[in-house]
Write a protein that binds this DNA or RNA. Structure first.
Lengths: 353, 353
DNA sequence: CCTATTCATGCAATCGATAGCACAGAATTA
DNA sequence: TAATTCTGTGCTATCGATTGCATGAATAGG
């Protein structure tokens, strides 16, 4: 029977966190043994494994991931670049991303959140912390981070935005969503359509508007009135005011806000001007944020499959992190129509997909 | 004139990212020289410094912060624990936190976002990544992370929440905010008051309600009707419905939602029931989120000084990270009254603070 | 009873950056 | 010209964890 390590070197100076070395000293074994024991290496005897595990628990040992990543080459960090969180969509996306990343054993390094371009220092952090991959959801302005990723072979995936140059992407089928809503409105009997767009340089905005417009054109109707130019509630509100100010006979009877917050802004302005939604004007959006589903709005919209988008996004990252593939790909997921009460119910014919 | 380094060892195997070692090889100097040159050590000659800087730029060298932190003991990471982002308040807070942290050269490690308790694995990441400090804003449930921080001497600061046990905190003076609004409503001539509370276990909710109630009591009025119990729009909406269902003569004529989303929910329900806000019932909130300032709501509220709260929070962290102090402290900042149009304008007497 | 294996563990190098100390050669002073 | 002080760099250990290889003991095979 061995006694507990007899001399027990008087626990050298620094009283910081426990390390493999300090554990090894207390156990009277080599650091490599401790390391292997903690990682359940089959070569370590069960007794030793247990003894070390108990010791680790006792002193509250936690591995230093930073040190580990020096050897392993993987930091376990994913860089996250978020758009302006005034739009709840980004907040919801973030929440999903944190949860799903954690489930895969990754942590998110929050590089940027909000409008405005990414500062150089921030973009550099992406490299300094050796992130294993990068998730970009900012509507625009991501180019800088994207370029840096590409130049340094950091796997990059954009969510809710399709890249112009480098990087893979996961997005909702925006074109289809726009078309779907146009269809819905046309069936409800609407003939004078309008679309309120977001930032013209973002794929989301342009594609949605285009899908909408194409369907309207296909129906032989004049091109929808175009308003907007910025993805915010304020912009939608202004557009709504413009619409409200038009003479009733020329006024659109249905409006697509290419994002839910835009649509909400439009609704707010119209109602404030005494124009009923959906009685006088129907309003629809795209995104499916929680706020738009709430009582005063109850917006008819195409919800993005957020959970799935994040999942596929992380899948893409993972594949690229493992070097399985380098080819860039774009994944489009179909959104889900949510019928609220912001569209007039009239001549709409059910059925027929 | 010196030629470019003559032999130039044929750039050994691995073609990964540049390191001090690879730079040193190409420059034909020692790694320590490279390190010092890049950190502008005065002992390095200007020519050498320039030569190395140029080389670093050429090969796109970026220091490996993970490796540096091994030596330096500082990771430059701040753990961030966020509450449910359904409440835009948290999203706004996060946005400020990212920006301000970056300005101080710190990066945020997003540990948790959303409702629900922090998973063990998440909390452990806090230690594994050797965060220099931790910022917690989750209304409740933070206890786990807080305990871990305390046990491991990780500086911890809670923002918008006052701790029960360990950790320092920065918060708005919730009591004062509640009292201020009670005062405002009383002056406006309201006599039948109600308060819709959030989670009873959160300091924010209880303190605000208490400040409100105390002021009401001081005016010699009966205690305000209490509703709520959960900090969400849905809860506010339900409370609003309850209020709307009361017989007019017994119905409160003014309601405080202890948070803006609660107040928004109340407004939505009341208006939907045909009860005008502020004509029939006044509604006020606390937080000052952007959404509540928008047209349909235009909520009268006490805005939390978000920017300042984050700043003071980071200050507290910094002091503790530098070991300047260990004492726990609570900082209260006064909120700002924002007058919207959700309060009836009547007998309100101006002046007098 | 002696030589192959297998098993459990130790040794030492490694990842990338930093910092203390050593050491040439130049500049200064005696 | 010799002694001394700077200057600018190099050498090497260090941070914490991992891993290939070596080593000693126990076991199996002949």
């Amino acid at each position: 029977m061995k006694e507990s390590p007899p001399p027990l070197p008087p626990e050298p100076p620094r009283a910081g966190r426990a390390t493999v070395a300090s554990l090894a000293r207390r156990a009277g074994v080599a650091t490599s043994t401790v390391s292997r024991a903690l990682r359940n290496d089959p070569r370590i005897s069960p007794e030793m494994r247990e003894r070390i595990a108990a010791l680790a628990l006792e002193v509250g040992y936690t591995p230093n991931v930073l040190a580990r990543s020096l050897v392993g080459g993987q930091s376990g960090l994913i860089g996250l670049v978020l758009g302006p969180v005034e739009n709840p969509f980004y907040a919801e996306l973030m929440q999903k991303a944190v949860a799903q990343a954690a489930a895969r054993g990754w942590r998110l390094l929050l590089l940027h959140a909000g409008p405005g371009p990414i500062e150089d220092a921030t973009a550099e952090a992406l490299l300094q912390y050796r992130v294993d991959g990068c998730l970009i959801t900012s509507a625009e302005l991501s180019s800088r981070a994207a370029a840096i990723c590409a130049a340094n072979r950091v796997p990059l995936v954009m969510v809710n935005r399709v890249a112009w140059e480098h990087g893979s992407a996961v997005s909702c089928d925006n074109h289809a969503a726009g078309a779907l809503l146009a269809d819905l409105l046309l069936r409800a009997g609407h003939r004078r359509l309008a679309v309120v767009t977001g930032n013209a340089r973002t794929s989301t905005s342009t594609e949605r508007a285009e899908g909408f417009a194409r369907q309207v054109a296909a129906a032989g109707l004049p091109a929808p009135l175009r308003l907007g130019g910025d993805n915010s509630h304020a912009m939608g509100y202004r557009a709504g005011q413009e619409i409200a100010a038009m003479p009733p006979e020329a006024r659109p009877d249905a409006v697509l806000g290419v994002s839910d917050i835009l649509a909400m802004g439009v609704m707010d302005a119209l109602r404030e001007a005494g124009i009923g939604v959906p009685e006088a004007v129907s309003v629809v959006g795209i995104d499916g944020i929680g706020a738009a589903r709430r009582p005063p709005y109850n917006l008819t919209t195409v919800a993005q499959p957020l959970e799935a988008m994040v999942e596929r996004g992380l899948d893409l990252l993972q594949e690229r992190m493992q070097g399985r593939t380098r080819a860039e790909e774009v994944v489009l997921l179909r959104g889900t129509l949510i019928r609220g009460r912001s569209v007039r119910e009239s001549a709409e014919t059910p059925g027929s997909a």
